[in-house]
Design a protein around this nucleic acid. Sequence first.
DNA 1: GGACGACTCTACCGCTCGGTACAGATCCGG
DNA 2: CCGGATCTGTACCGAGCGGTAGAGTCGTCC
Lengths: 203, 203
Amino acid sequence: MNAATPAAAGGRPRAFDEEAVLDRATEVFWRHGYDGASLSVLTGAMGINRPSLYATFGNKEQLFRRVFARYHAARVAAARAALDRPRAYAAVEAFLRASADGLTADDHPAGCLSIQGGLACAPENAGIAGILAAGRAETEAALSERLIRASREGDLPDGADPRAVARFVMALSEGHAVHAAAGATRSDLQASVDIALRAVRRD
Amino acid sequence: MNAATPAAAGGRPRAFDEEAVLDRATEVFWRHGYDGASLSVLTGAMGINRPSLYATFGNKEQLFRRVFARYHAARVAAARAALDRPRAYAAVEAFLRASADGLTADDHPAGCLSIQGGLACAPENAGIAGILAAGRAETEAALSERLIRASREGDLPDGADPRAVARFVMALSEGHAVHAAAGATRSDLQASVDIALRAVRRD
DNA sequence: GGACGACTCTACCGCTCGGTACAGATCCGG
DNA sequence: CCGGATCTGTACCGAGCGGTAGAGTCGTCC
């Protein structure tokens, strides 16, 4: 009955795997955005019918929140792994290279759910854009923390503002997502990363 | 009768200014995206009713094409003006600074219609994403041409690929648009531009 | 000054949207 | 083998979507 209930004892067993159908839903939201992902397309891709979706996840918005939370957790983990390098330059390089690879990987739609999901939404779905923006802000905050530490350690170019560098790196990554969604290849993005790294190099 | 007809001789005169209502439509598409902009909201903001919209512009998609063509022409003109500097560094700086200012100007929604308009759309509106991507690609091509010239003139950092630099600059600008849509300020973006310019500096 | 024509407005079209009622299917515990 | 709980599937709901019919309004031309 409840969306959070992981299936109690008795009763007919669920005919689908919750994580598997969330993967399919992720792809639909990613490809079409929140507004553009209709329940018909969602349930079709997920291979379940409407009442199952509503019984399991609540409604469209709660389904999206589940989808995005999973996506975002993975992204944050990857970012933290990249940032866990001893030097700022290497951390930023790892972040940008992993990001470029992820944006063009072929086991999911090109680009980034945090952006494709709904930068601009219908008035009644304005909250969705906020959820995504909060996720991106959290990633930028992780970057920022890492670079503030680098700044203390004298590991940034002279006079560089770590928060501004974090914003720059995050913005570039978001721009790469836009490019990837429009068909840019992995090597297109990596060449852009090559350029960007000149800005972070200590000289 | 026809959408392209600029009003013939006789008959009742049009009660609204075509360019003015296009401005209002631009703002709606910008704020809500193509999928999220309903005809009710559009006609409400434009101050006309549905049949007038259909008689004048054809349908929702053709209205959007008109809106985007106007927007894009202005953007390309601004880009070309910025790029018309004798040195590549100055051209890129002017491009990025003008872009950052435009993304946070307060006479229109924050961000960029080319991205908010519809990075990811409903399946039946897939063409919209293509229109926007083509517009962005044209801007990047203008940048690229300018930098290829700079490369010939020895006006880029040693070994820099002008196309990659153009992609980098364009991606950063797109990322700034995403940031602006989420509330970044003018000075936030300009600080990011400061960082980026380190990558283009000849040393 | 009347016939014509472009425009406006109300009211509506068929369709799809997100969301749900209800009956049948399938498991568990006793 | 039965009672109850949980899930599945069909068929449907009201609302809003993009788009239009047709009558009324207002200006131009002969």
